[in-house]
Structures are given as structure tokens and as C-alpha cells.
Simulated assay, not measured.
Amino acid sequence: MNLTREARVAIVGGGLGGLVCARVLQLHGRSVTVFEREAAFDARPQGGTLDLHPNTGQAALRAAGLLDRFHALSRPEGQEWRKVDHITAAALEQEWPPGDEGAGEEDRPEIDRGHLRGLLLDSLAPGTVHWGRAVSKAAPLDDGTCRLVFADGVTEDFGLVVGADGAWSRVRPAVSEALPGYTGVTFVETGFDDSDVRHPDLAQLVGPGTLMTGSGSTLLFAQRNSNGHIRAYVAFRAPQDWHTAAGLNLDDTAATRAYLAERLDGWADGLRYAVLGGDHAFVHRPLFALPVPHVWEHVPGVTLLGDAAHLMPPLGVGANHALLDGADLAQALIGAERVDDAVRAYEGLMLPRSSELAKQCAEGLAHLVP
């Protein structure tokens, strides 16, 4: 019998969902190891800002005993959201202004993804995360356990393997043949450093939170991060090889700027600047998503959470539900006698929830970028 109290748990992927799962397990004295293919926490940029929702992301941090530390790092003022006219930059809508009465239980403070990941990493026992340990595959065994095969050929068996390794999960094939597909929408990102000093007009336009505008199949949004940094994204609907058809080399910053300048022709100068005046080279991010719904028949010894389980368009729920997945799985393991019972209970909760969310996100993306 694969008992939860005795089982060794391996979490593949050191992102938010996997780390909160490890934290909750350790709070209750359970054995867990996190395997992360990156060499160190700062091996790559950690991404932009997240708003954590009360009943998902914040609930997960509460289960992890980290909610107070989160609030100490978060930016409540980042909840402000502005929609402006793309031609005049005049305000059309505004939500969550600072001091808004009625925010209360709906508070969704912003936090930089890197700060949140650092908070979770610091909460774990030393040595929990094994950096530079890339996994090639997970192989369920007949006794209800699972074998991890690492990129260097080493194998190790665990009572449970949790695939928390993102969009292109190496664990997912153990339970599902599904692969992410291109959504038809691509993002192009740039950034502005020390914006209040170096880009004051843009900083004033964006404000403390998020600015959004759009026209037709082109959407622009800019988000305030900590330390005066602003990330700006232009999104548009196009074939995945749109740059080939346009004769554009994505590594050519000047050519990309010229392409985007033409796409934003007629837009307000301040909004064009948010895309064309960045301090950083453009980053191209085609959006992928798993099929909707993405479900699987239960396989003993292995399960998924976060983007590995339900990759969906980035409309503000993915990270929150990755965190909730991690906390739900850990609590199921703590509360059940057998690993298999715990995983079945978790999947019975997570799969219907994520299927509905993925459907809503697909519809939301189609509405935002028609």
C-alpha cells in the first residue's frame, strides 16, 4: 500500500504551483523533492506582475502560511486598471482606483512573479530544490509508484511524481497525449526601466497598475512592475509564421519596430511610444493552449498541476490556479491515507474546475483579440 505519510513525493518544475505544493507538504512533515531544470533561480527573467485573487492564489498562500509575507511584498495600488481610446489616449474606463471603497474581500494585490517565486523558495527547507536536474520522462510502474528518468540517464523511483513543469511538460505524456496548440494570437513584449525618471509621460499614462487599449485585432497593454519598471505588450491575431510572411527577422529589433510602427499607424503618440520606445529588445511570445477540455484517465503514481495540466491564455487566472492546484494537491495528500485516494480526490476537484476556466479563457481571448 502506497501510504501518503511514507511516500516520497517528487515535484518536477520549480514554478509557483510546484513550490507552494512543496511548502504545504513540508509544513505537515511530509517528504518532498523539487527537480528544476534551470541551473539557478536567476537563470532567466522571471516574468511580469501577477494579481493574486482571494479565493485562489491568496487562499493557496494562506494554506502555505505565507499570506502575511505576501502582503508585505505586494502592491495594492497595482490593482488600478485603465482602458483608453487608441486614437486620443483619453480614458474610457477605470477600475480599482486607490482607496476604492468596496474593494475589501475582492482585493487582488499585484506582485512581481520573481518576488513571489523568491518568497516560496525561501520558505522551503534547504536542499528541497535540486537545481539543474532536467527530467526526460515519467514512467508509471505496476506497483502504483512512478520512475523519473533524468536527462543524464539516471533514474529514481517515487511514491508520487507531480508534473509541475509547465507548457511543454515532460511528465504530461505519462497521463495524456495532448500537446499545446497555437491560439492564433501572438504577443510582442518590451520594457521600460526607471520609468518615472526616464519615461515620465509613459509612467503617468500607465499609472500604478495596468493600461489597456485596442483596435480591431490589435491589443496593447502596459503594466507597472516594482522599482519603476513597466512591461508593455502588443497582441495581435496572426498565423504562427506571420513574421515569415512579412519578411521579418525576429532578431532584428529595428525591423520589428518598423513593422509594429506600421501596425499602430494612427494611434496616439503616447501609446505608440509604449511599444516603440522600449529600453529592451523585443521578446516574441506566441500564445499556446492545451485542448479544451484537457482531462485524462487517472494513472496511479503521477499527476499534473498548473500549466502542465491546463495551459490557457494569460488572462489573469493561470498563475492563481497553479497555486491553488499545488495547495489542493498537498492538502489532499495530507488528509488521505493512501496516495492514490489523495490524487483521485485532487483530480476530481481540479479537472472540472480547470476545464471550465480554460473554456472561459479561450472565449475571453477571442473577445479581446477578435
Rank of each mutant, 00 (worst) to 15 (best):
L276G: 00
A358V: 08
D51T: 15
C21E: 06
L351F: 11
E347N: 07
A342F: 00
K83N: 12
L271V: 03
E177L: 03
R37V: 05
E337Q: 11
F187S: 14
T244H: 14
L287K: 09
W267C: 03
P313W: 01
A245L: 07
V188W: 13
D265P: 02
G65T: 09
H53S: 11
E77D: 15
D241A: 07
A261W: 15
D42W: 03
A174V: 00
T128E: 15
Y182V: 13
D142E: 07
A40N: 11
P109T: 11
T49Q: 04
A59R: 13
E38R: 15
A345G: 08
A125F: 07
I87E: 03
Q94D: 12
R30W: 10
V197T: 09
W81R: 02
V24D: 07
V9Y: 02
P239Y: 01
E106C: 08
L73Q: 14
A358R: 00
D122Y: 11
G191C: 06
G266K: 00
D68I: 01
D42S: 13
V299D: 00
H284C: 14
G301E: 01
A40T: 06
S176T: 07
A39T: 13
G306H: 05
A232I: 04
R30Q: 09
A167M: 03
R263W: 15
H294E: 13
V369C: 10
G15S: 13
A358N: 02
A59D: 00
H367C: 12
D51G: 12
K137G: 01
F282R: 11
G184E: 01
L276E: 03
A167K: 01
L3R: 09
L61W: 11
L27R: 15
G335M: 04
S123D: 15
H284M: 10
F288P: 01
P300R: 01
F288T: 06
L148A: 09
L25K: 14
D196I: 06
M1F: 07
L50C: 09
L19D: 04
G191T: 05
E347I: 02
G207V: 02
E36N: 12
F150R: 00
H86R: 11
A222D: 00
L116G: 13
A178E: 15
R75I: 10
R338T: 09
T303L: 00
D122Q: 09
R170F: 02
H298I: 05
A151N: 04
F150D: 00
H28D: 13
Q94E: 14
A255H: 10
H243P: 02
I87Q: 06
G29V: 10
G207M: 01
G216N: 10
R113D: 04
D122L: 05
F192N: 03
R82H: 10
G127E: 07
A332E: 02
R23N: 10
G301N: 06
L66I: 15
G159N: 05
G102Q: 09
V339C: 05
L276M: 07
L264G: 04
D107N: 14
K359C: 06
V283E: 05
T155E: 05
I87M: 12
A89M: 04
I11V: 12
P352N: 07
G191K: 01
A174F: 00
D241Q: 10
L260Y: 09
R198H: 05
G57L: 02
Q26L: 10
R231W: 14
T128D: 14
D251I: 07
V275H: 11
W168D: 09
D340R: 13
